[in-house]
Design a binder for these strands. Sequence first.
DNA 1: CTGCATGCATCAAGAGAACTTATCCATGAA
DNA 2: TTCATGGATAAGTTCTCTTGATGCATGCAG
Lengths: 310, 310
Amino acid sequence: MKMSKQFPLNALRVFEATARLGSFTKAGDELGMTQTAVSYQIKLLEQNVGEPLFLRRPRQVQLTKTGELLAPKVAEAFEILRDAMAGVRDEAETSLLIHSTPTFASQWLARHLGSFQLRHPNIAVRLTTSETIIDFNRETVDVAIRSGTGDWPGLTSHPLMSVDFTPMMSPKLAESVGGIRTPRDLLKLRIIDPGDPWWTQWFTEAGVPDADLASRPASRLGAQSFEARAAIAGQGVAILTPEFYPDDIALGRLYQPFELRGNDGHQYWLVYQTARRNSPKIKGFRDWILNEFAPSASAANPDTAHQAAN
Amino acid sequence: MKMSKQFPLNALRVFEATARLGSFTKAGDELGMTQTAVSYQIKLLEQNVGEPLFLRRPRQVQLTKTGELLAPKVAEAFEILRDAMAGVRDEAETSLLIHSTPTFASQWLARHLGSFQLRHPNIAVRLTTSETIIDFNRETVDVAIRSGTGDWPGLTSHPLMSVDFTPMMSPKLAESVGGIRTPRDLLKLRIIDPGDPWWTQWFTEAGVPDADLASRPASRLGAQSFEARAAIAGQGVAILTPEFYPDDIALGRLYQPFELRGNDGHQYWLVYQTARRNSPKIKGFRDWILNEFAPSASAANPDTAHQAAN
DNA sequence: CTGCATGCATCAAGAGAACTTATCCATGAA
DNA sequence: TTCATGGATAAGTTCTCTTGATGCATGCAG
C-alpha cells in the first residue's frame, strides 16, 4: 500500500480550492487545470475518505457535513505550507552566504562588499572564512572564493584575479639598507616566511636562483595579510600580492621595488555549484564581482566561466 | 505555469519524512518508495526553493539552515492534514445518516434501530424523514428507505417488505356494528381517508367493486401512522400495512377482519448509492436490516439487490 | 415554453511525471 | 584493505493525471 495513495495530497489541494470557491470549474481555473481534473480529484478524495464531500447541486457544489468538517483544517494546513514556502523562498533570495579565504576576505571583500550591498540592498550577506577549501555538499554556502586551478567537479569557477606575488616592504626598511636596486639587495633584509615557495620562484625568475633561503629563520604567519602587516611594520620583506594592498601602496606604507611578479599558476576564483547557477542571488553576486574585476568591460562576461569536466 | 508545479506537495511530504528521519533511505521505507525516488523528490523541492535543503554528509543527510527553517512548518502542516483526514475518516465511519418515510421510521425503525446500535455501538445514527424521495446528490444522506419500484438510476436497492394493505380497526368498533363478517360490512363504518386508492383496490379484490367511496367525507391524515392512531381510537376503519402494527394487533388494539391483503406493486426498499456500496457503515446497515427482514435466513443475502439499469 | 448558457459527470486516449532497477561512488568501520 | 552503508545518476517503465469531446440537468432569457 503506497503512502502516496493513502494520503492524496494533490486531491486535498484541489479540495481546498474547490471548497473555497464553491465550484469545480473555478477551482480548476485557479489551479490551472480543467474542470474534469478537479472532478476526478474530488472523486478520488471522496473514495479515500469514504464519504461524499460535496453535494452536487445544479449549478454549484456545496460541502456536505463531512466536507465542512474537513475544509477548514485543510485550508489551515495549506496556509501554513504556503507561508513556509514563501518564507523559505524569501530567505533563499535575501541571504547570501559567502565563503572566502581569510586573505581575500580581509584584503578585498572587506573593502568592496559595500558596493555589492548598495546594488542589492535586500540581500543580507554573511561571510565565513577558512584556509581550507570548503565542500559545498557539507557546508551551507552559496558562493565561495578560493585560490587554485579552477578545476573542481560539479562547480562553476570564474577567474577573478591571478595570484601574482612580488617582494614588498616598508619604504623605511628599504632606505635603511641604502635602497633596493637589485634583487640581491633583498637578501640584506630579514625575509618574512622564507620557506614560502613563492620566494624561491621569484628569486629564480629574478635571476637569483641560488638565493639561500632555507637557512633563514622561519616565520610563518599563516596568512598573507599578517605578513603584510609585518612588512608594513618594517619587520622585513614579504612576498605579497600587490592588488591586495592598493591603499598601503598609495599611502607609502608598502613599497614594491621591482616590477617583476611571480605567478605560480594559481588564481582566485569565484566558485559555486553549477546546478545553482541560475539562482538570482548567485547570479547577482557573480555579475557584480566579475564586473568589479573587469572595470573596463561594460559588463561581466559569464562566458569566461570554467566548468571542470566531471 | 501550473500551480501543481509551483507548489510541489508530494515533494514536501517526502521532505517532511526525510527531515524527521534524517535519511533518504529511511524516508523511502516509511513512504513505501525507493531511496532513489526520495532523492529525486528532494532535488525537485530544492530546485523549487532555489536552495539546497540537505547537506549530503557521508552517511547521513543533514538539514541546511534553509531546511531547518522549512522543516518544522511543514511538519506542522502535515500534522494538521493527518488529523483532519483521520477525523473525517472517523466521522465517516461512525455516523450513519438514514433517511426514511415518516411511516416506516415511526412504525418500524423506531422499534428496531436499538438492535442495530447494539450490533454497531460505535456508529451514531441520525434519522431524518420526509414523504418526498430524497436525492442523494442533494442531501447528505448515507442510506434511505423508501417505497417504490426499486428502479432508481445510480442507486442500489434491496427489497425489505412489500407494502401490503388491509382494513383494520379497533375491535370495539367492529363489535359496535355486530362484527365484521363480509367486506360489505365495512361500509357500515366510517372509512378513514376513503380517497386512498388502496381502498378501491382492496374492495375490488374483495369482490366489492362498486363500493361507493367517493361520496364519503374525506379525512386525509397524510401518513399511515396517523390513520392507524385514528383507527385505534375507534374513529373508523383504516387501510393499513399490518406489519407496522404487530404490537397493536397483539394487544388487541387493532383488529384485522380479513386475511385478504392488497398490494399495489410497491415495496419498501433499502437504497444507497451504488458507488458507496463498500462503505463499512453502509454495508453494516444493509446486512443488519436485510437480516431483520429475513429472520429465517442465516444471513442477509445481498444478492437480492436491485440496481437500476442506467 | 423553447433555446441557450452554465456546471458537473463520464469516457477514451495521451502526455508526462513519478518511480524502479541497475550501477556507481564516497565514506567510515572492521 | 575490504566491506557495509547511504546517496547520486541514468535509463526505462508504469500509471497517475490531464485533456478534449460529449452528455445531462438546470436555470435564465426571450
